[in-house]
Simulated scan of single mutants.
Amino acid sequence: MTISFEPIGYVENKVTEKKDTRWGEDISRLVINQELSRGLTGLDGFSHLIVLTYLNEAKFEPQRHLVRHPQGREELPMVGIFSQRAKDRPNPIGITAVEILSVEKNIVTVKGLDAIDGTPILDIKPYFPQFDCRGNAKTPEWVEVIMREYF
């Protein structure tokens, strides 16, 4: 089965190279295709949204990425790709909850998006705490280690 998507826009920011840390202060513009701009109506009533991206510069190599140390850090345990939020995956889809700074015409300005300049946007969805936040969630200790410098 083949599944295909058309991007609804692209990311515009100053990040030109892949990185694993310090995304929290990055400001990005989500440039939505003009013909879809009316679909942003009402988004300014939300403080956050979820961005789904196509990680077009990711390169999944099963021998290297299927099981690996998160962020290539040897001090962390070997875990499978589906236990990580790594960029090099079988289907290079990124998902990030971000803060909305503004919505103007076909541009949504956000803070904290972990995507580089030119990344295609597959979809955006408003952040609903009732759906998107689970208070009883748990993660392994190594997640705390990599998240200390992620945002």
Rank of each mutant, 00 (worst) to 15 (best):
I8P: 00
G9Y: 03
Y10T: 10
E12D: 12
N13V: 01
N13D: 04
K14V: 12
V15I: 01
T16P: 06
T16I: 14
E17V: 11
E17M: 08
E17G: 07
T21C: 13
T21N: 14
R22N: 15
W23N: 11
W23G: 07
G24F: 07
E25T: 07
D26S: 12
I27Y: 07
I27W: 11
I27V: 12
S28F: 04
R29V: 09
L30D: 05
I32Y: 03
N33Y: 12
N33T: 13
Q34E: 15
E35T: 06
E35A: 08
E35G: 08
E35P: 03
L36R: 04
S37T: 11
R38E: 15
R38F: 13
R38K: 15
T41P: 10
T41F: 14
G42Q: 07
G42P: 12
G42A: 09
G42C: 11
L43K: 08
L43R: 08
L43S: 09
D44S: 15
D44F: 12
D44V: 12
G45W: 12
F46A: 13
S47I: 11
L49F: 04
L49D: 05
L49Y: 05
L49M: 11
I50Q: 13
I50H: 10
V51P: 02
V51I: 09
L52R: 06
L52Q: 08
L52W: 10
L52K: 06
T53S: 12
L55V: 02
L55N: 12
N56T: 11
N56K: 09
E57K: 13
A58C: 08
K59H: 14
K59E: 14
K59W: 11
K59P: 04
F60S: 10
E61V: 10
E61N: 13
P62F: 06
P62A: 05
Q63M: 13
Q63N: 14
R64V: 03
H65V: 05
L66F: 15
L66G: 06
R68Q: 15
R68M: 10
R68A: 15
R68P: 09
H69N: 09
Q71C: 09
Q71E: 13
Q71S: 09
G72I: 05
G72Y: 05
E74F: 08
E74M: 06
E75T: 00
E75W: 00
L76A: 08
P77F: 02
V79M: 01
I81A: 04
I81C: 05
F82P: 03
S83Y: 07
S83A: 11
S83E: 11
R85G: 08
A86C: 10
A86K: 04
K87D: 11
K87E: 11
D88N: 14
P90W: 02
P90I: 01
N91R: 00
P92E: 02
I93E: 02
I93P: 02
I93F: 01
G94I: 00
T96G: 04
A97L: 07
A97V: 14
A97E: 10
V98A: 01
V98N: 01
E99L: 09
E99A: 10
L101G: 02
L101N: 00
S102M: 01
S102P: 03
V103D: 04
V103M: 05
V103L: 05
V103F: 05
E104M: 05
K105T: 06
K105Y: 11
K105L: 07
K105F: 07
N106R: 08
I107R: 06
T109S: 03
T109M: 04
K111C: 03
G112D: 02
G112P: 03
G112A: 01
D114Y: 00
